[in-house]
Design a protein around this nucleic acid. Sequence first.
DNA 1: GCCAACGTTGGC
DNA 2: GCCAACGTTGGC
Length: 152
Amino acid sequence: MSHWLLKSEEEVFAFADLLNAPKKTTHWDGVRNYQARNTLRDLMKKGDQLFFYHSRSEAIGIAGICEVVREGYPDYTALDPAHEHFDPKSKSDAPTWFMVDVKAVRAFPRVITLAELKGVKGLEKMVLLQKGSRLSVQPVSAAEWGIVCGME
DNA sequence: GCCAACGTTGGC
DNA sequence: GCCAACGTTGGC
């Protein structure tokens, strides 16, 4: 099983919104970055677990854990001209953008903040903590996963 | 194919 | 709200 981290602006879609969604599940649509796309399309497998990270929020950090319940399939919001995430270069017979479905597993009792994560031994190479890292869908190693879960 | 200009991300 | 870092676009 692989581990990942998803970023979401808390004001746009928070972990609480996922917990409140039907079946605690949502389509992870709107990713428009090729590296992140490749992860969604090719690498994420059913049952993989993900950290849910709040960016641009009052409490920046990891709010909870979710899991992949449906593997990569075309992001229909890119194919819909009426949708704000519409992308004319994506075609239904050759989609550019992909998404997965994720389901909330549990919230951490408190957000594990970015500030706390910085400087923790063993997390030096975590993609999230690299300078200038903006990837919204990124890998987390098994060791990093264990360390972060141990911080709750 | 280069690279300047532009739009976006995200911590502060 | 600011702005540095990044990815993408498009003229040449």
